[in-house]
């Protein structure tokens, strides 16, 4: 149990980078960008191919992010300059990326098991005294030794945190404020001399850059890149954003981005728990995810409607019991 939860947090921290990207488009830009399903794989494919061809893993990971940035730029261009509906622009790009991803991979799945990934390198640096120390602590509590290394978790925590802080800072700069205003009041920010087209493209590009970066890291963590690994990714990202926001609030930008990261980790934990239920299969996860998102989207409205109904009923009752006639 502890080992599987450890794995959930580990991958959750990496998926959190993807969730931050989804947050940028869905929440900040108010742009439902479905490119994510494709750009996540693009990131994975670029990282895998680069590593296999001898590129240092760190550089390969950066290249993955750049590939996603370019994909997002194209989606943004199609939407703003081509005046194509945001959803459709994303779907078109996602579909186009499927073919491109296959081309990059050269085959449906590319294995990295024989290659040295960024995490293998981290593990080598980390293995020894530090792992022994943490595992020693676990031993005190009677827990088993972990299959992977603490280094991955701690370093990825730091990387994700840095990305969060940079995002927070960016959204408070003059350019960042204008990007947020696009999702809030586009007409206003245009009348304040902001080029909304270019800023939208920049926002969608950054978002997909983060998504692809996350994809590149997940490929290295899992040891493979698969052309189908991005299916439903946007819903997973959305689930992370919604779960995080519901549990931790969105009062400030810093709070919201932290909520998104924690949401991504909690989502992974929910998945891990769900997979322990006997009658559920791995393939059911997408359905569960979709149901979580649907419930999270609908329940606040139902609760609100019920509260409103109750309030009206009570008002009527108190008027009736008061015996007075109802005057408008």
């Amino acid at each position: 149990m502890f080992i599987s939860m450890f794995g959930a947090v580990e991958s959750g921290v990496i998926y959190a980078i993807m969730a931050l990207g989804v947050y940028l488009t869905f929440r900040v830009l108010d742009f439902p960008d479905l490119t994510v399903d494709g750009s996540f794989v693009t990131g994975a494919a670029v990282a895998a191919l680069s590593i296999i061809n001898g590129v240092p893993p760190i550089l390969a990971t950066v290249l993955a992010g750049i590939a996603g940035f370019l994909a997002g730029t194209l989606t943004g261009l199609i939407h703003t300059k081509g005046k194509v509906n945001a959803l459709l622009a994303g779907i078109l790009m996602m579909t186009a990326l499927y073919s491109i991803n296959l081309r990059i991979l050269g085959q449906p799945t590319l294995s990295l098991h024989t290659e040295s990934t960024i995490f293998d390198q981290l593990g080598n640096v980390w293995a020894g005294p530090i792992d022994d120390f943490f595992n020693g602590i676990l031993g005190i509590f009677g827990l088993e030794r972990l299959p992977s290394t603490w280094g991955i978790l701690i370093v990825m925590f730091i990387v994700t945190l840095v990305i969060k802080l940079v995002t927070d800072y960016f959204l408070k700069t003059e350019i960042g404020l204008a990007i947020r205003a696009i999702g809030d009041n586009k007409r206003m920010i245009r009348s304040l001399s902001a080029n909304t087209d270019n800023l939208t493209i920049l926002g969608v590009a950054l978002s997909n850059g983060l998504v692809a970066l996350s994809g590149g890291l997940i490929a290295q963590l899992g040891g493979f890149a698969d052309v189908g690994m991005g299916i439903g990714m946007i819903v997973i990202g959305l689930a992370s954003v919604i779960i995080g926001e519901a549990l931790f609030g969105t009062r400030t930008i810093a709070r919201a981005t932290l909520a998104v990261i924690l949401g991504a980790i909690i989502y992974r934990m929910i998945v891990t728990l769900a997979l322990r239920v006997d009658w559920l299969e791995t393939g059911d996860m997408k359905l569960i995810t979709a149901v979580i998102v649907i419930i999270a989207l609908i329940s606040p409205k139902i609760l609100q409607a019920q509260r409103e109904k109750k309030r009206r009923l009570e008002k009527r009752r108190s008027l009736k019991s008061g015996g007075g006639s109802i005057n408008a």
Binding site: T173, A178, S193
Partner: peptide, 13 residues
């Protein structure tokens, strides 16, 4: 945001 109307928007706070 309004203060940036007649200036170039930058990456400063």
């Amino acid at each position: 945001m309004a203060y940036s109307r007649n200036k170039k928007r930058r990456l400063s706070f």
